[in-house]
């Protein structure tokens, strides 16, 4: 291969890479300071015309719990878990400086003052813009979260293989 051909091949590959128009986010963390940027990225990517899939697993599932649901789970361990770690976008904690809820309250006040959309608004915007939200079936079983505990407008719960299959031709983020 000549230098010119090599250059052309490299250029074509670069252009093909640039055209990746799909984003798959694995939402593992359920903290306010992880879920918030996740939703900002998802809505921004939707605005850019990208196809977006957000796969919610482990702690990441809790933000999808309906805000009016208090206790979840079938056994005492799952119930205790939900008692200690309430789900819903309005009950997210900070990964640091939480101060028993004072940190998130201050963060929300700052966000409101700066007109930064709340996680709840962003989640609704994401749904309006066609962002595909997939809860992880295995985590739901493990943590005792039922479909009716979660918000409307989600896709059918699925497994890791579904998310990975979607990720094959996409940019992926694990947050």
């Amino acid at each position: 291969m000549t230098d010119t051909q090599q250059l052309e091949t490299a250029l074509a590959e670069g252009q093909a890479k640039q055209k990746t128009n799909k984003l798959v986010i694995f939402t593992w963390g359920g903290d306010l300071d992880k879920v918030w940027p996740t939703l900002i990225l998802a809505t921004s990517a939707a605005a850019m015309g990208m196809e977006i899939i957000v796969f919610f697993t482990f702690w990441g599932l809790f933000p999808l719990v309906r805000n009016d649901v208090r206790l979840t789970g079938d056994n005492w361990m799952q119930k205790l878990l939900s008692a200690m770690h309430r789900g819903g976008t309005q009950h997210l904690k900070l990964s640091q400086l939480n101060f028993a809820g004072a940190g998130p309250a201050m963060m929300r006040k700052l966000a409101a003052d700066h007109k930064v959309a709340s996680p709840q608004e962003l989640l609704e915007l994401a749904q309006e813009m066609g962002v595909r939200l997939i809860p992880c079936q295995m985590t739901m079983d493990l943590l005792g979260l039922k479909r009716e505990d979660l918000i409307d407008g989600l896709e059918e719960p699925a497994g890791a293989a579904t998310a990975l299959a979607e990720a094959q031709d996409a940019i992926t983020l694990f947050i």
Binding site: I40, T43, S44, A47, M48, G49, K115, L125, M129
Partner: peptide, 14 residues
């Protein structure tokens, strides 16, 4: 006016 990232671009796209 007054809105922060990502709202201006999100509202624009819509």
């Amino acid at each position: 006016k007054g809105l922060s990232c990502p709202l201006p671009i999100v509202k624009t796209a819509i």
